[in-house]
Amino acid sequence: MKASTISLIIHGVDVDVVYKKVKYLRIGVYPPLGQVRVSAPTRFGHEQVRLAVIERLPWILRQREHFQTVERQSRREMVSGESHVVFGAAHRLQVIEQPGRERVEADADHLLLFVQAGSTPEHRLALLERWLREQLRQAVIALIAVWEQRLQVTVPQWTIRQMKTRWGSCNPQTRRISFNSELARKPPHCLEYIVVHEMAHYFHDGHGDGFTGFMDSHLPDWRSQRRELNKR
């Protein structure tokens, strides 16, 4: 029996369940904000999985709270000297208050944030986030163009949005792909892994043997890229 993936909602928690040829049930909670993933033997029914998750629910909630706390603590004051990451590389922030158009400029080491005098940290952060989203959009456009040609498929629609528990998602029926806006802070090869991962679902629903074989064939280092992506 090939591996199959389903999604369950258990006591308000979204849980991805992968049924495959394993001896024991394992529960994991993963960044960026606490995605819950269960690896279950194929002989298990949904009710057995549900009861196992409920039994571990206090631990699961603690892990999810940890990830969310880390995310909250990572918020910046948006002042000169702070370090901000763009595609895996640290840049030193320099805030420049002056009249004129507000914008962000970047070089190899710095982020220059041009803002009006008296701007709030929230306003500065929103400006930076818009700039990061645009950098990510351009990177996704380039990667999709490359992989559409390699895989001989077309991605008809994709979007960038905030996602609490996933780096990306794909609806095989509509062929719509979504990317987590936080990917703008991850190394480019991690972004490429997500692009290929989601496009792979055009060919293989779920994450079974067919999916892993596809990834092995087209992106041999995908497992190491996944590990790097999921580091905090």
Results as ranks from 00 to 15, higher is better:
Ala3Phe: 14
Ala3Ile: 09
Ile6Gly: 04
His11Met: 10
Gly12His: 10
Val15Arg: 03
Asp16Ala: 13
Tyr19Arg: 04
Lys20Glu: 14
Lys20Pro: 07
Lys20Gly: 13
Val22Pro: 05
Val22Ala: 00
Ile27Tyr: 03
Ile27Val: 15
Gly28Phe: 12
Gly28Trp: 10
Leu33Arg: 07
Gly34Glu: 05
Gln35Glu: 13
Gln35Trp: 12
Val36Arg: 00
Val38Asp: 06
Pro41Cys: 01
His46Phe: 07
Glu47Thr: 09
Val49Leu: 10
Val49Phe: 10
Leu51Arg: 15
Glu55Arg: 11
Arg56Ala: 15
Pro58Leu: 00
Trp59Pro: 09
Ile60Thr: 05
Ile60Lys: 02
Leu61Pro: 03
Gln63Ala: 12
His66Arg: 11
His66Lys: 11
Phe67Cys: 02
Thr69Pro: 13
Arg76Val: 01
Glu77Gly: 06
Val79Pro: 01
Val79Trp: 09
Val79Ser: 03
Val86Cys: 10
Phe87Thr: 01
Ala90Gln: 09
Ala90Trp: 10
Gln94Tyr: 10
Val95Arg: 04
Val95Cys: 07
Val95Asn: 04
Ile96Phe: 03
Pro99Glu: 05
Arg101Ile: 11
Arg103Asn: 06
Val104Asp: 00
Ala106Tyr: 03
Asp107Ile: 04
His110Val: 04
Leu111Val: 02
Leu111Trp: 00
Leu113Pro: 00
Gln116His: 14
Ser119Phe: 12
Pro121Tyr: 13
Glu122Trp: 07
His123Leu: 08
Leu128Trp: 02
Glu129His: 00
Leu132Asp: 00
Arg133Cys: 01
Arg137His: 15
Gln138Leu: 12
Val140Ala: 10
Ala145Lys: 09
Val146Ile: 14
Glu148Lys: 12
Glu148Asn: 11
Val153Phe: 08
Thr154Ala: 14
Thr154Ile: 15
Thr154Pro: 07
Pro156Ile: 15
Pro156Leu: 15
Gln157Arg: 14
Trp158Arg: 05
Thr159Arg: 15
Ile160Tyr: 02
Ile160Ala: 04
Gln162Tyr: 11
Lys164Ser: 14
Thr165Pro: 05
Gly168Phe: 10
Ser169Trp: 13
Gln173Asn: 09
Thr174Phe: 09
Thr174Arg: 08
Arg176Gly: 08
Ile177Cys: 07
Ser178His: 14
Phe179Ala: 03
Leu183Asn: 01
Ala184His: 02
Arg185Thr: 03
Lys186Asn: 02
Pro187Lys: 13
Pro187Trp: 15
His189Thr: 06
Tyr193Ile: 04
Val195Ser: 02
Val195Tyr: 06
Val196Gly: 03
Gly206Tyr: 00
Gly208Gln: 01
Gly208Trp: 00
Asp209Ile: 04
Gly213Ile: 03
Phe214Cys: 06
Asp216Thr: 10
Ser217Asn: 13
Asp221Gly: 09
Gln225Ala: 13
Arg226Gln: 13
Leu229Asn: 00
Asn230Leu: 13
Asn230Cys: 13
Arg232Asn: 08
